[in-house]
Amino acid sequence: MIPGPRAAAAVAPPAAGTRGEAPLLEVEALTRHYAVGGEEVRALDGVSFHVRRGEWVAIVGQSGSGKSTLMNILGCLDTPTGGRYRIRGQDVAGLSDDALADLRNREIGFVFQTFQLLPRSTALANVELPLVYRGVPRGERRARAEAALAAVGLQNRARHRPNELSGGQRQRVAIARALVGEPSLLLADEPTGNLDSATGDEIVRLFAELHRRGHTLVLVTHEPRLAARCPRAIRLSDGRVVADGAGREVAALGAQAAGA
């Protein structure tokens, strides 16, 4: 359960976007090519789409579809070979490594399949970590981390270490850590991949609640079932967008293609 407004205030998202507002994410004719064994591999081959503030979007595709490469570019962990990627109007192409890191730390909160928690640190210390890197004073970062844990229903587990938490609780800690910096975008990579079905459903319900509160969510997954829970899904195949629409419809197309 997500607590009331006071606890959530410290991790409140920006106001939801409107039709007249520029998209939060702009991906235009994006390409990413690699040289492998003397051959050129087109991991992304002309990908285009926009994401507005407050949207919840799944990027779905099988292994080799290009979704991991796209996630790395959306997360400012990589830069495209061609085309454009803008986040809040800023083009990532040509940015230095330091500028990319700064953009990533300011605008993006990451949620990973394997949680990526420090095993010897408490849940609270793990959530505080992004604010430590930003130089936020200790008292402020402690208060913000406590509010972020409350926002994912783990205020009573703040002093527990990861090995004292269930898989679902660890993922909630990871989500709180992603939220604590008040990012423009929450980017999740296979967020239910290490969880059983029931626990995975709990995490999806949490994402739905965050979406209801106005957060912008992009989930990268190979699971049509997860994509079907999202209001919108974009399906990749061989580095290209082959479907972009309602999550249930795109997921159904993917299931049909897999059964063909």
Rank of each mutant, 00 (worst) to 15 (best):
A8M: 13
S166M: 10
L25S: 00
E190Y: 05
I73E: 03
G139S: 10
S121M: 15
L77K: 03
E28D: 13
D201Q: 12
A150T: 08
V152T: 11
L187E: 08
E209N: 05
G89S: 10
E209T: 14
A260R: 15
S68L: 02
I2M: 15
D78I: 01
G245D: 15
Q90G: 08
G139K: 11
Y85E: 04
S63D: 02
E146M: 13
A93D: 00
C230A: 15
G17H: 09
P183S: 12
R134E: 10
R213L: 09
S96T: 09
V51D: 04
I108F: 10
K67Q: 09
A151W: 05
G181D: 02
Y85W: 06
A151Y: 06
P3V: 14
R240P: 03
W56A: 14
G75R: 04
V218N: 03
L217N: 09
P5Y: 08
L131Y: 03
A99V: 01
Q62V: 08
H50L: 07
I87L: 01
L124A: 12
N163T: 13
Q90M: 08
R159I: 08
W56D: 03
S48C: 01
L103Y: 04
A258E: 15
L186W: 13
G61I: 05
A151G: 00
R229Y: 12
L165T: 13
V152Q: 02
R88Y: 04
L217W: 10
E39K: 10
E140V: 12
E26P: 03
Y85R: 02
E190H: 04
A16T: 11
E164V: 11
N194W: 11
L236H: 07
A188C: 14
E140M: 07
R159A: 15
S65R: 04
G17T: 02
A158Q: 06
L187W: 05
T122L: 14
A147F: 07
T18K: 01
L253K: 13
L131R: 00
P3K: 13
G247V: 12
Y34P: 00
A101C: 01
I108S: 05
R229M: 14
Q169T: 07
P23V: 00
A233L: 09
L187M: 06
Y85K: 01
C76E: 00
R84Y: 03
R212K: 10
I73R: 06
C76K: 02
Q169Y: 05
A208N: 14
G245N: 08
V250I: 13
V173L: 14
